[in-house]
Design a protein around this nucleic acid. Structure first.
Length: 427
RNA sequence: GGAGGAGUACCCAAGUCCGGCUGAAGGGGUCGGUCUCGAAAACCGAUAGGGGCUUCACGGCCCGCGGGGGUUCGAAUCCCCCCUCCUCCGCCA
C-alpha cells in the first residue's frame, strides 16, 4: 500500500513511476476524487459530532437541574440521524479508497531497470563453474527415477499433478538441505528460527500483498476463511502485524522453514516435468524488519545470506536485478538468484530477495518508534528464499551427477547424511 | 463440539448490576528530582497509548475501553453477532 500523503502531493509523479511497470494502474485516476470526498465527509460528521457532544453535556446538566430538555433532545435526534447517514456514506467511500490502495503496486526504486519481461533483467554477478560433463548428462527427473528417490506417478494418483513423493535418500537429501540451511542462517547469519502455521487468515494474506489481487494463486480452505501459505513470508511477516516494535529490536531477522502451496494458476504447461514447479514445495525463508534508512543495505546483506548457501553447496548461479516488469506487485527492488540447471541449459530462479520498503508494513501496520517521544514510523520489510529446497535438490542432482549414475553429495551436507558421499541405486 | 468465566491504556487492575463532570480510579513501570560515596529502599514531581480531520505553526476537534452492528439526545456501561484467551466436559495426533 502506498502512502496516501504521497498520492495527494504528487499523484503525477507516482503515476509516472508506476507506469514503468507492466501493470494496470488506471484505478489511480479515481484517487483524488475519493480522497477529497472522504475528507469532506469527515469534516461534516466531525462538526456534527462535536456539537452532539457539547449538547449532550448540556442535556445532562439540565436534567440535573430538573429543567425540561425536550426541545434540544428532539433537535439532537435529527443531528444524530444526520451523523448516521454521513457516516454510512463515509464508510462506503473509505472502503472504496481502501480497495483502490490495496490494488496499486509498489513504486520501483529509481535504479530498477525499466523493462517488460525477464529478458530486461540485469545480471549483477555470477559465481561458480558450470559443470562440463564428459558423458551424456541426464535431467533430474530421469535420475531420480533411476535411483528410485522420488515418485511423481504415485503422487499423481494419491493427490494429483504437480505433487511428488520423495523416497529414501531423496527424502533424506531434502531434509538434510532444510537442516543445513536453517542451521547456517541461525548460527552464522543471526536469524531466529521460526516454524510457522501453514494456514493463515485473510488479513495476513492481505498484509503481505497476496490479496486481494492474487486470490486465484492461493489454495483456500473451504469451511474457514483460511489460506494455505504460498510462502513462509506470509505468517512470519504477519507475526508483527498491528504491532509497534522498539527500535533496539531492529533489525529483526527470522528464518523459517515451511511447506509452500501454490495453485500455479496460469502456469499450465510450464515446467511440467520434475521438481521445478510443484503445488507443494519446501522452502527456507529469510525475513527482516529494518529501519527505513537501512533497507537497501539490508537487501544486499540478505541476498548475500542466500548466496552463501549456493556457494557452500558449490552450485553455479547468477544474481539478477529484476526489471520493472518482473518486480512483482509488492517489491520496490528485487534480486533473483538463478541456479545453473544442466537439463534446462539455463539458469533457473532458486531464490527471490526483495525490499518491500514500507509497502507491506503499511498494509500490515507494522511500525516502530525511534524513542519514547518520537512518532511511530513504518518499518521496512524484506525477505528472500534461502533457498527453495526442491529446486536445490534438482540442482544438486543434476550438477553433481556422475558417469555411473550416482550423485555426489556436496560436502557440507554429508554430516546431515550420516557421512554418505554418494546417492547410489539400491542393490 | 457442549457448559461456564474473562478481554479496559506498556503491564496489572477498578468501573459495567443503577447509561451522563470517567479518556477512564489505584498500583507497577518509565522519566526527572531529593536522599546516598554509590546503589537499593523511601519520598516528591512528571508522563499516560494509537489513529484521523484541520492549522504555516501554537493549537482545536473527532474516533477510541477485544472487533462489528444496534438502542439512546448521550454507551466502557443496555441489546445482538463475531473473535480471542482461561476452566470443566467430550473428541483426538
Amino acid at each position: 500500500m502506498l502512502d496516501m500523503k504521497l498520492l495527494r502531493s504528487d499523484l503525477e509523479g507516482v503515476k509516472e513511476k508506476l507506469g514503468r511497470r507492466s501493470e494496470d494502474i488506471s484505478a489511480l485516476d479515481q484517487f483524488a476524487e475519493k480522497d477529497e470526498r472522504r475528507r469532506e465527509l469527515i469534516q461534516q460528521t466531525e462538526e456534527l459530532k462535536s456539537r452532539r457532544n457539547t449538547v449532550s453535556q448540556e442535556i445532562s446538566q439540565m436534567k440535573k437541574e430538573k429543567k425540561n430538555a425536550d426541545d434540544i433532545i428532539a433537535e439532537m435526534k435529527k443531528v444524530s440521524a444526520e451523523i448516521k447517514q454521513l457516516d454510512e456514506e463515509l464508510r462506503t467511500v473509505e472502503e472504496e479508497l481502501e480497495h483502490l490502495l490495496l490494488t496499486i503496486p509498489n513504486i520501483p526504486q529509481d535504479d530498477v531497470p525499466v523493462g517488460e519481461t525477464e529478458d530486461d533483467n540485469e545480471e549483477i554477478r555470477s559465481w561458480g563453474q558450470k559443470p562440463a560433463f564428459a558423458f551424456e548428462q541426464k535431467p533430474h527427473w530421469d535420475l531420480v527415477r533411476e535411483l528410485d528417490i522420488a515418485d511423481f506417478d504415485r503422487a499423481s494418483k494419491v493427490t494429483g499433478s504437480r505433487f511428488v513423493f520423495y523416497k529414501g535418500l531423496g527424502a533424506r537429501l531434502e531434509r538434510a538441505l532444510i537442516n543445513y540451511m536453517m542451521d547456517t542462517h541461525e548460527e552464522e547469519h543471526g536469524y531466529e528460527e521460526i516454524l510457522p502455521p501453514y494456514m493463515v487468515n485473510r488479513d495476513s494474506m492481505t498484509g503481505t500483498g497476496q490479496l486481494p489481487k492474487f486470490e486465484e494463486d492461493a489454495f483456500q480452505i473451504q469451511e474457514e476463511d483460511y489460506f494455505l501459505i504460498p510462502t513462509a513470508e506470509v505468517p512470519v511477516t504477519n507475526m508483527h502485524r498491528d504491532e509497534i516494535l522498539h527500535v533496539e529490536e531492529l533489525p529483526k531477522a527470522y528464518t523459517a522453514f515451511s511447506a509452500c502451496f501454490r495453485s500455479e494458476a496460469g502456469s499450465a504447461g510450464r515446467d511440467t516435468r520434475g521438481l521445478i514447479r510443484q503445488h507443494q514445495f519446501n522452502k527456507v525463508e529469510l525475513v527482516r524488519f529494518v529501519r527505513p534508512e537501512e533497507s537497501n543495505k539490508e537487501l544486499e546483506l540478505l541476498t548475500g545470506h542466500a548466496e552463501k548457501i549456493l556457494q557452500d553447496l558449490g552450485l553455479p548461479y547468477r544474481v539478477m536485478k529484476m526489471c520493472t516488469g518482473d518486480l512483482g506487485f509488492t517489491a520496490a527492488k528485487k534480486y533473483d538468484l538463478e541456479v545453473w540447471l544442466p537439463s534446462y541449459e539455463a539458469y533457473k530462479e532458486i531464490s527471490s530477495c526483495s525490499n518491500f520498503e514500507s509497502f507491506q508494513a503499511r498494509r500490515a501496520d507494522i511500525r516502530f518508534k525511534r524513542d519514547t517521544k518520537s512518532k511511530t514510523e513504518f518499518v521496512h520489510t524484506l525477505n528472500g528464499s534461502g533457498l527453495a529446497v526442491g529446486r536445490t535438490v534438482a540442482a544438486i542432482i543434476e550438477n553433481y551427477q556422475q558417469e555411473d549414475g550416482t550423485i555426489e553429495i556436496p560436502e557440507v551436507l554429508r554430516p546431515y547424511m550420516r557421512g554418505r558421499t554418494h546417492i547410489k541405486p539400491k542393490q
